[in-house]
Amino acid sequence: MADATGAEPRVVTEADRGGVLPEPGAAKPDPILSATGIERRFGGVVAVDVAHVEFQRHQITALIGPNGAGKTTLFNLLTGFDQPNAGEWRFNGTSLSGVPPHKVARMGMVRTFQLTKSLTKLTVIENMRLGAPDQRGERFFPALVKGLWSSEEDEITARADELLERFKLDHMREEFAGSLSGGQRKLLEMARALMGSPELVMLDEPMAGVNPALTQSLLGHVKALREEGMSVVFVEHDMDVVHDISDWVVVMAEGRVIAEGTPTDIGRNQAVIDAYLGTHHGEDLHPEIVEHRRLEAEAEAEALEQSAEGDSDDDTAERP
């Protein structure tokens, strides 16, 4: 499937498709991130079963799919927050198998979370400073002597203030992150991720729970990332948003990649429409079964996530 160059494309309409076929697992000219044979099971439920997928550098790729399609699980796997039962994936050609999440981040792939993980009892500026990588003052012994890290801290703060201004959070600088609105937290999290100057930004539902007024500004920021030479992969539900900003769309359903293409391709794709309507290639699945599977898989994923992090705060996870 990855080898698609020989086949005749069925529809060729978009110039910006860049010679890539609109089908699942299509090879990209310069993939920043690629994954093969990724499988993740929770008990008996297969949450993710991706044969092959590639993400193009310097593009905004949207990862969409109905609830429970395995998007967030795939995100967790690719960023090292969860380990697959099988499969291999590479970032800039380096295998990430078994690489812990903090190392993945240091390599230049930084993610955000669907449920914002703002450090609510730190101030906004402290949140930002934390995002800076490789700080001298973050090592035990140098930390004891302020002189050793204060100048670095000043540089970090200056950069943080720039980003805060750009994301229009500068007026909240000294507030606890906990006092921010949901949308502001999303912005803060994105800004914080940028402190590490990543190559690839993985955004898990950046627009979820954000009020419409902020949505446009968020979209603007995401587009700006591409202009600055970063690559972006983001999970989204809202097709309008996807149409607006993404260069390429990958569609997942029931753990698999079922379609790829430009936003326009995807809008016409029958498999995608079926998936969103709860049917799957003629095989009649009762909606209740689908719903049940989804609930089970998500509860599993959530339970697993909790068991990994010991965080009770997520009990109240909203499920859009």
């Binding site: 960023t79 927050f81 812990p100 999440p101 903090h102 981040a105 930084v110 993610r111 955000t112 979370f113 993980k117 703002s118 450090l119 609510t120 009892k121 730190l122 402290e126 400073r129 934390l130 700080q135 001298r136 003052g137 973050e138 090592r139 035990f140 930390a143 004891l144 302020k146 890290w149 801290e153 999290e189 991720a193 992090e309 010991g310 965080d311 705060d313």
Partner: peptide, 19 residues
């Protein structure tokens, strides 16, 4: 120090710090 900041952040949310 920034070291303490990392500690306090871990208290708030480990995954965020990892990311």
């Amino acid at each position: 120090s920034p070291w303490g900041r990392v500690l306090r952040s871990i208290r708030e949310n480990e995954d965020a710090v990892r990311s």
